[in-house]
Nucleic acid binder design. Structure first.
Lengths: 330, 330
DNA sequence: TTGTAAGCGTTATCAC
DNA sequence: GTGATAACGCTTACAA
């Protein structure tokens, strides 16, 4: 043991772990010895003993989707603030991968808690026989079933607010991009519900032809879906996209079709990614307060790590419509 | 020990680690026992014993800068391909944080190798007394000094190519955005050198007023810098940005000034982020083959982990100019 | 207040 | 081919 350099063993640990009752002389002596030997406690050994790695895992579909990147940024910062590091994993769009991660069937689980932004719904999760083996907080879902912690906005209401804004500026042929071919995803379902409610409140019908699916939430999908909409005999005069990135693609498609945003087609998204604050036109959107979401989520896992059997909590973050150029705002 | 369920100990390990000489009967027996007891090898204990965590660390300034997000995506995928997971850390713009990470002064080093996209230059690194304690590959730097592995493009040449393109389309008052107030950063220096060489080859002078600093490489910095340039008595007719994100801000600033891109001011960046393929106008840029960079880098650390004392290698990735709308391309 | 000893769950060395 | 046994480097009762 490198530590015997000067004194004894237990004392070293007391000093390192900041124990109260250590004589000042001892403390100094130990610190000096640590300097001289360039000694560093081995985190792995500590982990083996304590069962804590000090690592949280953040799982998102794709890290290079700006919203997830921004989320990751906030999560990493929030985690660092309370002494955790963050491992980032991508599921692609692989459901099996998600399940494996959740059930811990993935052998390499060296983290204390999991922040999970899933595609599979809690309903699907429920079918899994094995309950999660690690403290878990779900992000972006809002199908609360009392089993897992959730941190999310009110998706249905957010969609409602966005579409209501389109109605308010006089649009009548309102389309939506982002419905998922897989019925099982909760978030798009909720947004569709909000879309429908807003149309209903405005006395407008929800027409199937105005409902465009998106296999994934990237620009290319938004572009393709918008093309479909614009090719309709009676194209929409407004498009509500379930994600800003879809909206960026949709805007480009509108211009490529020789039309203008917002004059011919107004576009609004959800997420408030930075890109939309500089694009031409700037993008109207629903802002999510991602820092708050990240902070709440990190706090929540941390708390669950420290005290396991807590009842599941549902935390709803604030959202607000931001009117920008793409819907005729300043 | 859960393992005693059926047989003995050593055998279990042999089976788990896929040892050659185990009777088929034994193997089956063990596997069955593992099923029944839902046994999972503890990765931490394994790590303590083997010294391998199976984790790589990727350190970038900010994960929500699209280029780094795209890099992270590729790194995570490449790492997964050879059995590594990735921890992502952000340095913000904190040099001390970078140094701590590199010297291992950061106690919580639970990774086998480090992929580091630094702000500090190798020159600065050199001054650090402690050599890095962990296999290290530098990304995006190109000031090779024979001590660390590097994976990067030829920054000087990339800048030269970009600016030469601006010259080729007839621009004469060419400005640059991205010089760093801190002289010590290598990448911007190299890009400035390439900028200067291209101007020189075209018989154009490099004027100090056309050289704009950017405190960071985000949209806001590009926007502010472009505003400065456009306010000059003789504003530039082209802007070379050291990063696409700067270019996105610059483009917006040009339009907000009532001018057009590329008609009045052509803009080109570096990075080829996806955003630039959908923006209006689409952004001319220098493409970096990020997947290749990520793959090379991951392979390189992995190799260094397996066989430490290897001489430092310099890997130069390909780059190519992509002409899009922002410089008058199709 | 400080020292001693046991054990976290692996892997690896050694005989059998 | 398989079974004991000793580390890996730390934390933590427990004893002094």
């Amino acid at each position: 043991m490198a530590r015997h350099a000067q004194v004894s063993l237990r004392t070293v640990n007391n000093v390192v772990s900041g124990y109260q009752h250590v004589s000042e002389a001892m403390r100094r002596k130990v610190h000096q010895a640590m300097e001289e030997l360039d000694y560093r406690p081995n985190p792995i050994a500590r982990t083996l003993r304590t069962g804590r790695t000090g690592v949280l895992a953040l799982v998102v579909p794709e890290i290079d989707v700006p919203y997830f990147a921004e989320l990751a940024r906030e999560v990493i910062n929030a985690a660092a603030g309370i002494g955790y590091r963050v491992i980032v994993d991508q599921t692609g769009h692989d459901h099996d991968r998600e399940r494996r991660l959740l059930t811990g069937a993935d052998r390499t689980m060296l983290f204390d808690g999991l922040l999970f932004s899933p595609l599979v719904t809690p309903a699907e999760l429920q079918e899994m026989q094995d309950s999660p083996v690690v403290p878990l907080v779900l992000l972006g879902e809002h199908d609360f079933d009392g089993r897992y912690d959730h941190v999310a906005i009110d998706n249905e209401q957010a969609a409602f607010d966005a579409v209501s804004h389109l109605v308010a500026i006089g649009r009548r042929r309102i389309a939506a991009i982002g419905v998922q071919p897989q019925e099982s995803y909760a978030t798009p379902q909720q947004r569709t519900a909000g879309f429908q409610r807003a149309l209903g409140d405005a006395g407008l019908p929800m027409e199937a032809r105005y409902l465009q699916a998106a296999p994934h939430y990237r620009r290319a999908a938004g572009y393709a879906a918008a093309q479909e909409l614009l090719a309709l005999p009676e194209p929409p005069d407004a498009i509500f996209c379930y994600a800003d990135l879809l909206a960026m693609g949709a805007v480009r498609a509108v211009f490529d079709a020789g039309l203008r945003v917002p004059d011919d087609v107004a576009v609004i998204g959800i997420d408030d990614i930075e890109e939309g604050r500089y694009s031409r036109p700037t993008l109207s959107t629903v802002s999510l307060d991602t820092p708050q979401i990240a902070l709440e989520a990190v706090r929540r896992v941390a708390s669950r790590i420290d005290e396991p059997g807590q009842p599941a909590l549902q935390i709803t973050a604030a959202h607000s419509v931001l009117v920008r150029e793409s819907t005729g705002g300043a």
